[in-house]
Amino acid sequence: MTTQQEAAERPAAGSRAIPAFVGQVLSGVVLLVLLTLHMIAQHFIVPTGLRYYEDVIAWLRNPVVIAVEVTFLVFVTYHAITGVRAVLFDFGFSERTERRLTAVFWVVGIGTVVYGVALLAAILNAA
């Protein structure tokens, strides 16, 4: 396929969708805060850091911690999946392929968050 034929497959310009870049910036700002909190919690709250089972479970029983960690999971998953999407879209796929990939990424992203929340529930139930 020539470059001009490839260029002809380009979707109409002027997309009204919010640019993924803006979402990455906003989620990135949130992650700067949440990741810092996460690292402080993991390494500086308990003298030796949150390492062994008893310390981790005691920490996770705090509802505020649960809320923060789930929020962190949502934002980090969004940022990660959107980032991978941006990298893959640089391969120059067709518009149809990009729409399909976006749908797959939504499934993977939601699945990741669901898995994380279910895992948290399972951990607390097993403790």
Binding site: Y52, Y53, V56, L119, A122, I123, A126
Partner: peptide, 16 residues
Amino acid sequence: HLMILSLLVQGPGAWD
């Protein structure tokens, strides 16, 4: 990280 955290479900033996 998410996969490793699943060791917590198996209890203190596996995690520690």
